[in-house]
Structures are given as C-alpha cells and as structure tokens.
C-alpha cells in the first residue's frame, strides 16, 4: 500500500494504491490523518485500491469524522470496485455523502 499526497490551492489530493487492509492500518492512519493539515479540502482517490477490509474502512470513517470536527471537507472520489462494494455492504455511502456509482440498487 502506498499513499501519494499532493497539495495545491488549499486542496489536498491523496491517492491510495494497493490494499487498504489491517496489515497496513497503522501506516495508513499515520498518513491519512495528516492530510487534514495540508488543505481546507481533502480528496482521497480510491481508484487504485485493490482490496479493503473493515480496518481500512474504519480509517476512512475516522478521517471523515476528524475532518468534520475541524470543519474541513473530505471527499472520497473515483471509488474502485472493492471500495464501492464495502460502502454498499455497510450502507455507508450516504454517510460520506460522495456521489458514487452504486453497482446495484441501494436498499
């Protein structure tokens, strides 16, 4: 798993590549949370996420919650199939509030 971070015009773009799993959870936490300091808006690009488990998903939740706490906006974009499946299964798409293409009808 790698996270590349770019910041321009107050927008922080983070792009996660590889597995968002418990094996990388500690590492991810250390990289995702500081993103909130790099801009007023944070965009996490999930297009290259090959696999995501509950640990990975929790970190997205945490980042979203922390962003709200400090009044910044967090967007998840370009969801990969793996991330979409989890958002759908946990019925959390609306929590994040990002426009996503759901692979099947939401319940």
């Amino acid at each position: 798993m790698t996270i590349s971070i770019e910041s321009s015009n107050g927008v922080c773009h983070a792009r996660v590549t590889g597995e968002m799993t418990i094996y990388h959870a500690a590492e991810m936490k250390g990289e995702l949370l500081p993103c909130l300091d790099y801009g007023t808006e944070v965009e996490i690009d999930l297009s290259e996420v090959s696999e995501i488990d509950t640990a990975g998903f929790q970190l997205l939740l945490l980042t979203k919650r922390e962003a709200a706490k400090v009044g910044k906006s967090l967007r998840l974009v370009a969801h990969s199939p793996a991330t979409l499946e989890v958002l759908d299964l946990f019925n959390m798409a609306s929590y994040f509030g990002d426009p996503v293409m759901m692979p099947r009808a939401a319940h």
Binding site: I22, T54, Q58, L89, N91, H107
Partner: peptide
C-alpha cells in the same frame, strides 16, 4: 437479504486513542 443495515461507528474513540487494528463498529 439484508433488508437494511446501519453501521454504528459510535464506539470509535478520539483519533489519538484510536487503534487502527482495533474494531469499533
């Protein structure tokens, strides 16, 4: 068929206390 599911993150502690390998859901 999961007719409806609500995911509860309520138990997740403050960021500093949150252990990324623990489950809070």
């Amino acid at each position: 068929d999961i007719v409806h599911i609500v995911t509860l993150p309520d138990a997740m502690p403050f960021a500093t206390d949150m252990d990324p390998e623990s489950c809070y859901l």
